[in-house]
């Protein structure tokens, strides 16, 4: 048996984990499961693609960085894409979610996110058609790193980026005032207001962070696999499963659970067959719901 699945699983799990951070934050702070989160991911990937193409058109082709498949325009475009995805999320909140939030009834907001998801995804199909596109057509050579595992430079770079993003998120949530306020608000919204926390600011921060990380995950999928309008929908179930397995509200939990799901998927691909991969997240989800619904790092519902 080849150990390659470990690397594949880690890569896959990083993308799930990054996406799941947004899902878990949205659930913990805005109190609903956002079915449109996967579509933020896809929109981020396409926005970045548009920016990369724009930069290439203006500045001409740039040489790739070292052995990577992309150059500096990709990095600039990624930052721009994350900002645009954040703005998209804020716009959605302003148009839709905030209005429904004022009326209570969380499940109506879930339904609205479901409708928004469908509209966003099909809008991508309208704009870009359903055929896949790529950031780069360059083929990367995978280098053997021992134990029969091969890895491409892009994969290494993106694992490092994921690690940096996750560490940065953890420090942000534990050390910064905004991070503390977000945690406080998720524990007790009423008390948060009493101690002077501006809810509107917390809501904005949650959307911006969740969307930016969704975009990062979308870019990773785009670099390593391909960009398709349905890419977000395909990631939705693994992201939800990771958020629940990790324990709602827990960022380390979401990332660890993302890795667990990614590894399980990769193992399934190797042992059973690629066609059953999408069922893994569901199996894990059901197991968590039956055995430990609060997840690995969750606390019992108040």
């Amino acid at each position: 048996m080849s150990l390659q699945f470990i690397l594949d699983g880690l890569i896959n799990g990083s993308m799930i984990g990054l996406g799941a951070i947004g899902v878990t934050l949205t659930y913990a702070i805005l109190r609903f499961s956002n079915f449109a989160h996967g579509d933020l991911m896809a929109w981020g990937a396409y926005a970045t693609l548009a920016l990369v193409s724009g930069i290439a058109a203006l500045a001409g082709a740039a040489a790739p960085i070292g052995a990577l498949s992309f150059g500096w325009p990709m990095i600039v475009a990624a930052l721009g894409g994350m900002a645009l995805t954040g703005l998209l999320a804020l716009a959605l909140d302003w148009l839709l979610f905030a209005r429904l939030r004022d009326r209570g009834q969380a499940i109506i907001i879930v339904m609205a996110s479901f409708g928004a998801s469908m509209a966003l995804r099909s809008l991508l199909e309208f704009l870009f058609t359903s055929s896949p596109v790529y950031y780069s057509r360059a083929i990367q050579m995978a280098m053997p790193v021992g134990l029969g595992i091969r890895v491409t430079p892009d994969q290494i770079a993106l694992l490092v980026v994921t690690l940096a993003l996750v560490l940065g998120m953890h420090l942000f949530m534990t050390r910064s005032q905004t991070g503390r306020e977000m945690r406080a608000y998720s524990q007790n919204p009423a008390l948060a207001r009493v101690v002077g926390i501006d809810v509107a600011r917390i809501v904005r921060a949650t959307w911006l962070i969740g969307a930016a990380l969704a975009c990062a995950a979308g870019i990773m999928v785009g670099i390593l696999v391909q960009i398709r309008p349905l890419m977000g929908l395909d990631m939705l179930l693994p992201m939800f499963a990771a958020a629940i397995l990790g324990g709602i509200g827990s960022i380390p939990g979401a990332v660890l659970a993302g890795l667990i799901i990614g590894l399980s998927e990769a193992a399934t691909v190797q042992l059973i067959g690629a066609e059953w991969r999408a069922a893994v997240a569901f199996a894990i989800l059901m197991a968590v719901l039956f055995i430990r619904p609060m997840g690995l790092f969750g606390v019992a519902e108040r």
């Binding site: 079915f35 969380a106 499940i107 879930v110 179930l237 069922a279 569901f282 039956f290």
Partner: peptide, 28 residues
């Protein structure tokens, strides 16, 4: 049975998963 003792969102997520898995079974 799996979800109705939990919050409403879990039912939504699980039904979404059911559709994904049924689609897989149909295809594979």
């Amino acid at each position: 049975i799996a979800t109705l003792r939990l919050k409403a969102d879990y039912l939504a997520i699980t039904t979404f998963g059911v559709a994904v898995v049924v689609q897989l079974v149909m295809l594979n």
